[in-house]
Design a binder for these strands. Structure first.
Lengths: 343, 343
DNA sequence: ACACCGTGTGTGCACGCTCCCAATCATCCG
DNA sequence: CGGATGATTGGGAGCGTGCACACACGGTGT
C-alpha cells in the first residue's frame, strides 16, 4: 500500500503505469479489472500487486466514455419539499438505496425536482445518459417526469405503485391493502365497532389502497359502510388533526380510527386529547408506517410496519436488473402489525 | 426542440454533429459551450440553434476526462446511522445543499461511511478524484476520514466546527455559543433561577459550545455553577428522557432546563410529564434546532432556530470557492430565539 | 509599405480507458 | 505430423471533449 504520500496533488496513476509496473500490457490489466477472464494466474497476480503498489484507482470517466454507461444512478424526488422533510420514511429509503448501491460500487446522485425548471433540467440530465437508471420517489399520479423518462427508455423503478401511468413501469411497494386489512381486523378484534379512517391523498397508491383494505374488512365483517367515518388527509400532521376533528363531529360514537400514516396519527392523538377522549380506552388509534414518530407519541402508536429496508434493496435489485437488460417487474412486500399502547 | 423522438435509445448527438449542423468547427461549438468568448454573434447564434435542433447535451464524462474535474461533489455522512434517521436537520441540510449545487448544475453524490469498510472505499473513491470536493457532516471529533481527505488536499467544507483537526479545514456553523446564551438569558428573564442543562455529546462542537454558552450566562448573572444541574446526552430522544430523570434526582428544585437539541427536549418533556411537573409552569424547557419535532410536542417547544438554509448555501459557496482555488474559510451564522409554549 | 495587434476560427492532440483483432503458444485430434 | 482449437497476450482504434496552437482578417501605428 505504498501510496503517493508526498503532499500536494499529483497525477494519479493510470492503467498504463500499472501495466508497466506489472510487466504486462494495458489490455491485460483491463481484463483483470473487468472480471479477470482470459488472464493467466501469474499475470493476474502481478497486476494485482502492481495495483496495490501504485494505489491505482480506475478513472470512471474514461471508462464511461467508452462503455457508454455512467455506473451511477439517480435518486429522484418529485415530491413537494414539505413531505421530504416531514416524512421519516424518505430517510430510511434513501439510506437503504445508498447502501444497496454502494455494495455494487455505484454512487447515488440525489435529484430534487421541485419546480418546473428543475424538472426540465433534471429530465435533460437523465435522458442525456448521465445516469444509468433512476429510483423514483413520487407517489402522486400523473407525474410528467416519469412519463418522459419512460418514453426515453430510461431504466426506472418507482417506490410505490404509480397510478396513472398505464404503461409498464417497474415498482416496489409494501402491500398497502393487506396492511390496512390487518390493522382494521386488529381493531375489530378488540371489540371496536365504529371504526373511522383518515386516508392519505386519494391520488396516491397508499391513499387508495389503504382505504380499500379498510372497506374490504368492514364489508367482510358484515358492517355497513358509513361515509361519516371516512375522511381524507394529506399525510401531514395537521391534516390528521383536522381529520380527527371532522370525524368526531360527524361520528361522535367512533371508538377506533385507522390512520393511514403515523404522522397523521400524531395529529389525531392531539385532537383526541383536546376533545377529552382517552386513547385507547375511548378510541383506539392505529397508524401506518412504523416511523420513529410512532414511538414519540404518548401513548406509543400501534402501527403497520413497512419493510423499508427490503423495499430499498429490492428497488436497487430491480433497477440493476433492468439496466442489465431485463424486463420491468413489480415487487410487493408484506407488512407487519406492530402492537403498542394506542389500541 | 426537435428531439430524437423515435423510441429506443440511439446514440446521442455529439459536439461534432452540432458543429456540422451549425456549419462551424468543433472548436467554435466548444467555445460557445464554455462561456462564448471569442465567438462572433453570428456563429454564436448558429451554434445555439444547432444545439436546440439536435437536442445536444454535453457529455460530462468526456469533458471530465480532459479537464480533470468531475463537476460533482460528495455529501459525506460519517455519523452512525441512527442520528441520520432521527435528526431532521440532516434532511434540511441535504436538501439545501442539493439545491444550491443544482443552481450550478453540479450533481450531489450521497456517501454514507458508517462502517470501516465503507470508510475505506469512500476515501479511495474521493481521493481518486471522482468528486471535486466534499461536504462533510461529521460532528464527532477525531474523524479519520476528514484527516485523510485534508492530507490528500481534497477541497472540504464541514458542517459545524470540527474539533480535533488542528489544521485548516473550512467549516460553516451556526453560532452555537451565542444561541445557547440567548436561550439561557431568556430563561433567566422569566425569573427562573435553577436552570439545568442537557448537553449534547462533549466530543461535538454543538455539545461543547452550547454548554459553554450556558455557563457563561450563568456566570455573568452572578450565579454559582452547580454541577448537579448539568448532564450530557447524545442528541437522541431517549437520552433526553434519561437526562431529565437524572436532573430531577440531582436537583429537584430545578425550574428550567436548556436542552441542546429538540429531539432530546422531546424526551425531557416526556420525563417531566411522568414526574408530574407541569411545563412551563413548574419547569420551563428550551430546545435547540427548531426542528419539526419542536412543533410536534405538547406544549410546543421554545427553541433556537439554526439557519439551515443559509448554512447549506454557505457550505456550497465556500466549497466551490475552494475548488476554484481559494483558501479555506470559516463562516459562523447567527441563530434566532423562537418563543413558543414551553417557556 | 511594413509590422503589430486583438478578435475570430479551424485542427491536431491528448485525456484514460475498453474493445477488437491479430499474434503467439501449448495442446489436442485425426 | 498437419492442422484445428483454445487460452493468453499485445497493441491499435476510438470514445467526446477541451486545450494549445496556427492561422485569417481588418484595423492601427509607424
Amino acid at each position: 500500500m505504498t501510496m503517493n504520500s508526498s503532499g500536494g496533488r499529483r497525477k494519479p496513476p493510470t492503467i498504463h503505469d500499472v501495466a508497466r509496473e506489472a510487466g504486462v500490457s494495458r489490455g491485460t490489466v483491463s481484463r483483470v479489472l473487468n472480471g479477470g477472464h482470459y488472464v493467466s494466474p501469474a499475470a493476474h497476480e502481478a497486476v494485482n500487486a502492481a495495483i496495490r503498489k501504485t494505489g491505482y484507482v480506475v478513472n470512471r470517466h474514461a471508462r464511461s466514455l467508452i462503455t457508454g454507461r455512467s455506473d451511477s444512478v439517480g435518486f429522484l424526488l418529485t415530491e413537494p419539499q414539505e413531505r421530504f422533510f416531514e416524512d421519516p420514511n424518505f430517510n430510511v429509503l434513501l439510506r437503504g438505496c445508498t447502501q444497496a448501491l454502494a455494495a455494487h460500487d455505484i454512487p447515488l446522485l440525489l435529484m430534487l425536482a421541485g419546480t418546473e425548471g428543475e424538472r426540465r433540467r433534471i429530465t435533460r440530465y437523465i435522458t442525456a445518459g448521465h445516469v444509468d437508471g433512476v429510483l423514483l420517489v413520487s407517489s402522486h399520479s400523473g407525474d410528467p417526469i416519469a412519463e418522459q423518462l419512460r418514453a426515453a427508455d430510461v431504466p426506472l423503478v418507482a417506490c410505490g405503485k404509480p397510478i396513472g401511468l398505464g404503461s409498464r413501469v417497474s415498482y416496489v411497494a409494501a402491500d398497502d391493502r393487506d396492511g390496512a386489512r390487518e390493522m382494521v381486523r386488529h381493531l375489530l378484534s378488540l371489540g371496536r365497532r365504529r371504526v373511522g379512517v383518515v386516508t392519505g391523498p386519494l391520488d396516491t397508491p397508499g391513499g387508495v389502497e389503504r382505504l380499500a383494505g379498510y372497506r374490504e374488512v368492514l364489508a367482510e365483517a358484515g358492517m355497513e359502510a358509513d361515509e361519516r367515518l371516512v375522511v381524507s388527509g394529506d399525510y401531514s400532521r395537521v391534516s390528521g388533526e383536522l381529520g380527527a376533528e371532522r370525524l368526531l363531529a360527524q361520528a361522535p360514537d367512533m371508538d377506533a380510527v385507522f390512520v393511514a400514516s403515523d404522522l397523521m396519527a400524531q395529529g389525531v392523538l392531539t385532537a383526541l386529547e383536546r376533545a377529552g377522549r382517552r386513547v385507547p380506552q375511548d378510541v383506539a388509534v392505529g397508524g401506518f408506517d412504523d416511523s420513529p414518530a410512532a414511538l414519540a407519541t404518548r401513548p406509543e402508536l400501534t402501527t403497520i410496519r413497512q419493510p423499508w429496508d427490503r423495499i430499498s434493496s429490492e428497488m436497487v435489485r430491480v433497477l440493476l436488473a433492468q439496466i442489465g437488460g431485463e424486463e420491468a417487474a413489480a415487487v410487493i412486500l408484506p407488512t407487519e402489525l406492530v402492537k403498542r399502547e394506542s389500541t
